[in-house]
Computed example of a mutant assay.
Amino acid sequence: MDGEPDKIIIVEGKTDKQQLEKIITEEVTIICTHGTLGVERFDELLEVYQLDDHDVYIMADEDEAGWKLRKQLQRELPHAEHIYIQKDYKEVATTPEDELAYALLSKNIEVNPIFL
């Protein structure tokens, strides 16, 4: 990656992570929060992944839990960018792959062109 910082995508669950891993072609770290984060868990992620020193993206479901997580992470990581899915799909894991690919591509995350 020629000295560029790694990109980190924060998602809610394991199935979200699996869906993104099928689509993304570049080296990206995907972190699962398994819902909202407690202070200790967030501090651990902050330290382990050095979140303040990387390009961080938040991709959460379009539901109450997802909005709550986005709000929490926005406070803790104001430099993070949000990647949104259409409200109609509600969950990252059930969003069609082409929709996810275009959403990721809009943030300059490399995707397999088969999904475009």
Results as ranks from 00 to 15, higher is better:
residue 81 E to Y: 03
residue 113 P to M: 09
residue 67 W to P: 00
residue 113 P to D: 08
residue 16 D to K: 07
residue 97 E to C: 00
residue 44 E to R: 12
residue 41 R to C: 02
residue 78 P to T: 08
residue 25 T to F: 11
residue 52 D to C: 07
residue 47 E to R: 11
residue 31 I to M: 03
residue 58 I to R: 04
residue 13 G to D: 01
residue 72 Q to Y: 02
residue 40 E to N: 15
residue 95 T to N: 08
residue 4 E to Q: 09
residue 86 Q to G: 14
residue 109 I to V: 04
residue 30 I to K: 02
residue 57 Y to R: 06
residue 45 L to G: 05
residue 17 K to Y: 07
residue 111 V to H: 10
residue 41 R to A: 02
residue 53 D to A: 08
residue 11 V to W: 00
residue 99 E to C: 14
residue 98 D to W: 10
residue 6 D to Y: 10
residue 99 E to V: 14
residue 16 D to N: 08
residue 33 T to I: 03
residue 6 D to L: 15
residue 114 I to S: 10
residue 42 F to Q: 03
residue 37 L to C: 05
residue 80 A to P: 08
residue 59 M to T: 00
residue 44 E to K: 08
residue 22 K to E: 15
residue 14 K to I: 06
residue 24 I to L: 12
residue 97 E to G: 00
residue 113 P to F: 09
residue 103 A to Q: 13
residue 10 I to G: 10
residue 109 I to K: 06
residue 72 Q to D: 05
residue 36 T to D: 05
residue 85 I to M: 07
residue 114 I to R: 14
residue 60 A to C: 15
residue 70 R to Q: 03
residue 70 R to G: 00
residue 62 E to I: 04
residue 96 P to A: 04
residue 88 D to Q: 12
residue 28 V to N: 00
residue 1 M to N: 07
residue 48 V to H: 12
residue 103 A to S: 14
residue 28 V to P: 03
residue 12 E to R: 01
residue 8 I to N: 06
residue 29 T to V: 10
residue 37 L to S: 04
residue 58 I to T: 02
residue 6 D to K: 13
residue 55 D to L: 13
residue 73 L to D: 02
residue 96 P to L: 09
residue 60 A to P: 01
residue 24 I to W: 08
residue 91 E to N: 13
residue 7 K to A: 12
residue 64 E to V: 11
residue 88 D to C: 13
residue 92 V to S: 08
residue 110 E to I: 00
residue 38 G to F: 06
residue 104 L to A: 04
residue 92 V to D: 06
residue 24 I to D: 07
residue 7 K to T: 11
residue 80 A to E: 11
residue 106 S to C: 07
residue 2 D to A: 11
residue 35 G to V: 01
residue 41 R to H: 13
residue 79 H to P: 00
residue 106 S to T: 11
residue 19 Q to S: 15
